[in-house]
Every structure is written in C-alpha cells, then in structure tokens.
Simulated scan of single mutants.
Amino acid sequence: MELETCRNNDTVMDTVMIARILRAERCQLLVCDCATNQEVVVHADNACCFSCGDCVCIRYSGAMTMSLPPQISATCVARHCGN
C-alpha cells in the first residue's frame, strides 16, 4: 500500500519528528525520536498502516504533554526514506 506523503501547508508551522516505531496500535504509535532517543506516544488516525521498526516522519503542532512517556497528536505520519 502506498502511503500519502505529508504536505506542509504554508500557513501552518508544523514541528517535524523523525522516529523509529517501537509499537503500532489501532490509533497510536510508540516511537523513539531519532534526534533525542526519547520515547513518545503519537496519536494518529493512520497508525495501523505502520509496523514496528518503520522509520517515520511525524508532523505535529509542537505541543507535547508532560506525561511519561510524553504524547503528541500527529497532523501527518508518513514513512521516512532517509537514513
């Protein structure tokens, strides 16, 4: 299945996270942020399209909860091709 790529709307300043998926569930992912090695729960409608080990590009508002692990709501999640 080909996944739609995330497009950045010029009027919205999204924060981008490149992460490796640790666990994929129905509407959420547990990922490890490649930049910080921090585990983050990502709420995303298309979470079930991904598998453990996938590298993804996550766009979100920049808001992150202070819970452990922190949580974000993605505006877009797509496979990341870079290494």
Rank of each mutant, 00 (worst) to 15 (best):
S67M: 05
I18P: 01
A63S: 04
G82R: 10
C55A: 09
C32F: 06
A47G: 07
R59W: 11
N37M: 06
N8L: 15
S61Q: 00
T11P: 04
D33R: 04
M66D: 07
C32D: 06
V40D: 02
M1H: 13
V31I: 09
R20E: 15
V42G: 07
H43G: 10
V77D: 00
D33C: 01
C48W: 15
G82S: 09
R7Q: 14
C49L: 15
I58T: 00
C52K: 10
L29H: 06
Q38Y: 06
C32N: 13
R23L: 09
N9G: 11
N37V: 08
V42E: 08
C34E: 12
R59M: 08
L68P: 01
G62F: 00
S73A: 03
H80K: 05
V77R: 03
T36C: 03
V56N: 04
G82Y: 03
V42Y: 08
L3N: 12
M1Y: 15
D45I: 14
I21T: 04
C48D: 13
M13D: 15
V77N: 03
A47D: 12
I72H: 00
N9R: 14
T36M: 06
R59G: 03
C48P: 07
I72V: 02
Q38K: 11
Q28C: 06
R59A: 06
D45S: 12
R79V: 05
P70W: 00
G62Y: 02
M13S: 15
A24C: 03
T75P: 02
D10H: 10
S61V: 02
T5G: 09
T11L: 13
C34V: 10
F50V: 05
N83V: 07
S51Q: 11
G62I: 03
A78M: 03
A44K: 10
C48A: 13
T11M: 13
N46M: 07
N37T: 07
R26Y: 05
A63V: 06
S73E: 08
A24Y: 01
T5W: 11
C57S: 15
N9H: 12
A44C: 14
A44E: 10
Q28S: 05
N83T: 08
N9I: 14
I58R: 01
H43T: 12
D10S: 14
H80Y: 12
A19L: 04
F50Q: 07
M13G: 10
M66F: 03
S51W: 09
Y60A: 06
C52E: 13
I72C: 01
S73L: 05
A19P: 02
L3T: 13
V41L: 09
T36D: 04
P69I: 02
D45N: 15
C55P: 06
V41T: 10
C81A: 08
R23Q: 14
S67W: 02
V12E: 14
Q38L: 11
M64F: 01
Y60T: 03
A78C: 04
R7N: 15
C48K: 13
C76I: 00
N9E: 15
V56R: 02
T5L: 14
T75K: 04
C6M: 09
N9M: 11
A63E: 04
M66T: 07
M1R: 10
C6G: 09
I72P: 02
Q71A: 04
L22G: 03
M17F: 00
T5N: 14
D10W: 13
